[in-house]
Design a binder for these strands. Sequence first.
RNA 1: GCCAACGUGGCUCAAUGGUAGAGCAGCUGAUUUGUAAUCAGCAGGUUGGGGGUUCGAUUCCCUUCGUUGGCUCCA
Length: 635
Amino acid sequence: MSLKIKLPDGAIKEFEENVKVIDVARSISDGLANSSLAGIVNGKKVDLDYEICQDAEVSIITFKSEEGPEIYWHSTAHLMAQAVKQLFPEVKVTIGPAIDNGFYYDFDSEKAFSDSDLEKIEQRMKELSNEKLPYVRKEVSRNEAMEIFKAMDEPYKLEILSEIPEDEVLSLYSQGDFTDLCRGPHLSHTGKIKAFKLLRSSGAYWRGNENNKMLKRIYGISFPSKKELKVYLNNLEEAKKRDHRKIGKELDLFSINDDIGPGLVLWHPKGAMIRHQIETFWKEQHLEYGYNLVYTPHIGKGQLWETSGHLSFYKDGMYDSMEMDGIDYYVKPMNCPFHIMIYKSSKRSYRDLPMKLAELGTVYRNELSGALHGLMRVRGFTQDDAHIICTPDQLEEEVEKLLDFSLMVLGKFGFENFEIYLSTMPEKSVGDPNEWQAATESLRKAIEKHNLDYKIDEGGGAFYGPKIDIKIKDALDRSWQCTTIQFDFNLPTRFDMDYIGSDNKPHRPYMIHRALLGSIERFFGTLIEYHAGNFPVWLCPVQVKVLPISDATSEYANEVLEALKKRGIRAQIDERSEKINFKVREAEMEKIPYMFVVGGKEAEEASVSVRRHTKGNLGVIKLEDAINLVLEDKE
RNA sequence: GCCAACGUGGCUCAAUGGUAGAGCAGCUGAUUUGUAAUCAGCAGGUUGGGGGUUCGAUUCCCUUCGUUGGCUCCA
């Protein structure tokens, strides 16, 4: 459909193709009826706040199968705020945006919102939705807005307004007795919101700053129909089944024990076998890619952490010191200083560079108790850490190799969907801005060379250098940073690192920190959720389970087991006097990829009945062929 | 650390202001089985820890620890 709109300067703009209008909201400006609309133009989401020409075709659609439900959610947030203000007039409103998955609204309230309060609010929202209250837009000057919110006694809105320039024109949106400061756009009326659910309440600091007051936040989601809401809630339940904490328990992979301490992981035999496969692969590949493997201690003298700056900037994140012979030692929160000491153990020449030191280094950090989360955020974890020390002219090539390496490794584990972020120089930083620029450009070039989508986190770099992060989403759509490639313009100076160049003069080298998996714990967590426990065969702790039908075939079943083991396949046998149905069921629940069922028939003709996890019975196959089938799948 | 919810045997979950009950797992025995649960018996809990209210608490209150969801932080 095509759409014509009149821009504020009077010009007419016409969109020819692929225009989808998400919704149109009526508004009143200077006494004239106006409309604001949000739409999708050529696949891109746009907020249009202009007058629609009389002759323009506009058909209102919902976001059912389109992108851009933000307007919907934002309007629901306003609806919720209205309901809350009616039920609890003493509550002060703050902000309520749409987020990736729904919306929230933060309230300043002495009282916490209980589950029954949420039900009450939902009920009131239903009533307000039935009233089909129009969302009315009104443009006002900043000072007018100040007067309005002063009269309403809304201090948080006043605080926001006080930071806006006086000459700016602002928009207010009202529905019924509720008015909010808001850019819009919004739905035309509250009746459009047909299905919603308040999901949970939680605390949130005003403006995200922990020195500010803790507000009460309510999260919710809404849809144009009850059916979509039902599907959404159902998906949410399904996603919880992939939770690594649940699967970790079911498959007996790991545990975290109260008596040992929060955030400290026990790797059970099956989880440890998977980790062993990961580590073996990791080490082989690093040797292949020109890294040197190193090992370093778990503790180091306070002086070392003084030099590195950790004790002045990161002390809260470190476990407390322990004393030996009158000297304080600290458990390491990072491996860098140790690798630097290896570098500095002898005089280095430009011919030694690039030097790549890699270690599966176990570190301990005092993470806030409230931040701990299964394997995703723990207090003791092993980073697949490496430091690349190079000359300025090696920079670009090294960064490119590094990204290649990262993508190859992620691919090996089956990861295909991830988000890439490039973080640039923050306000407070150390190092030469020209070097920052060169480093940032080398990162950008490497990403673009791979033709990858990425987002720029402007000013999101560490104070010591720009970085690339790769984040992987968990079952509930939360992103976790795994791969990280970080420049460091801080430590080489602090530790006075140098190399002798071809000019026979000392130079400061570049240093890059990088972790491909991030931490093995977190990586394992995302791996579990990504595959829902159905790991690629090469990682499975048990790849084949041999299931004899009865004691009569026990001898042959053991021959099969031995044949598998001889070919390097991790196999087990289930010789219990149980029915085959029961053994199959258990093997299926253990998510073992291959089950070899053997009975009299198979014993006679040296074959096995192959069953593939989630795929079912593949039929009787000669033992040798069955083994080759597994070996192929293992690659 | 902050806000909130939750915490019952190894696991999943019941119940009640009057000293806890089931299924699975475990153990013992029987069963020898053809692609997702064979049957029977037995054993297992000072209801996260501490304190209080009460004639009596697992249930109500306080506190502490832990978990979960957010905030903050971050691999």
